[in-house]
Write a protein that binds this DNA or RNA. Structure first.
Lengths: 214, 214
DNA sequence: TGACTAACGGTCATATACTGACCAAAGTTC
DNA sequence: GAACTTTGGTCAGTATATGACCGTTAGTCA
């Protein structure tokens, strides 16, 4: 059924045209100043049409992150194929994560907006679930690096994996939050990288130092 | 108004998709065996949609010729820029004309169908006019070649231009009719070319020979 | 040769998709 | 605190598309 296939394709194309227009505008101006009307105009549609494809302005906003973060995960997947120490892998993973958000800062804002305002976003359940799963995927990859370190004898088997992975993820996001939108613009990237490097080094040293209380 | 522009583009694209599908099917099977339903399916539309863009099956058929013949005229336009004798130009024009139809035989059938069944084609007036103008354009080019010959002293000024151009056009079409669809397939092109060459040579000799009756 | 059937060009009632005026809520101004 | 403006989201009206249906034509059969 070519006819049905064409209609499906047109719907898909329409959705993508909306996302593309929205992405451009959000990245240029941020969430608030961009109106649904302006997205509609850039996508060459009416405002009513936007709501045929997306439930809300927030849904469009978060869908942008979901579209982009697949590339990040594909990139990360290659990381674990490259032979190296677990410590090196962890640093490299952190750098790729940071690069992803440095490349487009608005993506980080989208992630944080979601993390901080989940219940206010008015997202359909499946989109909520999808974002959570996607975020967890990143966290799981961090956990795999720790497991890899234990397997190679690099890290002690006594590490609390869940705790460590959450701590690393939190630290990455916390450091990025501190420096991505504030400070001297030309020094932000370096500030993030060096702080993360120092933080990871210290955390890893902590892992390797026997706990005298045990 | 991007929205209106997009809608206009979509209509244009839809029309072109129909023409493209129709062209493919007509060239493969000819006019009769191709149904409007089959064109619709190939264009990934419903049959009712076809009639939103074209008034009839015949209109689609003739529109195909109109789309293609522009290329022919552009090609021919270059001809008159190349310095040569009028006789040579005439032969070259005839060859380009023949090539055009040899390249896609169905185009000739479309032209002849129009010429022979104009009143039965149920075409809107503007399309009728357009085809007539387009056909006349070809005839006018032939006339210009004769004028060129007179200007250079190659042909006598006593030539009846209208008569000659119509005779040449008729001869070309008549010869093509004779050989395009009948005879041994591998010999058809050559049969047409050589017959046209001979016919043109004879006609030109006739032009150059003083009429003793005058 | 007339009755019947199948096929298909073209039509149009219905379905689907889209639009932008409108409403309610929130923020701003006086 | 009232009036005003802006904007996310809604929905009645409009635009576009679909495919069942009808009328006509051509072919078949008795």
């Amino acid at each position: 059924m070519g006819l049905e296939e064409r209609r499906r394709r047109e719907r898909e194309n329409r959705k993508n045209a909306i996302l593309k227009a929205a992405r451009r505008l959000f990245f240029e101006k941020g969430f608030k100043p961009v109106t649904v009307e302006s997205i509609a105009r850039k996508a060459e549609l009416s405002k009513g049409s936007i709501y045929l494809y997306y439930n809300s302005k927030e849904e469009i906003y978060t869908q942008i992150l979901l579209n982009d973060i697949d590339k990040f995960h594909n990139h990360i997947a290659a990381l674990l194929q490259t032979p190296s120490s677990a410590s090196e892998a962890l640093v490299r993973l952190a750098n790729i994560y940071v690069d992803f958000f440095l490349n487009e800062r608005e993506l980080f804002r989208i992630l944080m907006t979601f993390m901080l305002h989940t219940t206010d976003m008015n997202l359909p359940d499946d989109l909520n679930t999808h974002i959570i799963k996607t975020t967890n995927k990143t966290i799981d990859i961090i956990e795999q690096v720790f497991k890899y370190g234990i397997e190679r004898g690099e890290f002690p088997a006594t590490i609390n994996l869940r705790q460590s992975r959450n701590a690393i993820w939190g630290m990455l996001n916390g450091i990025i939050s501190l420096h991505l939108f504030t400070g001297i613009e030309t020094k932000r990237a370096e500030a993030i990288r060096s702080t993360i490097k120092a933080g990871l080094d210290t955390y890893i040293r902590g892992i390797l130092t026997p706990n005298p209380g045990l």
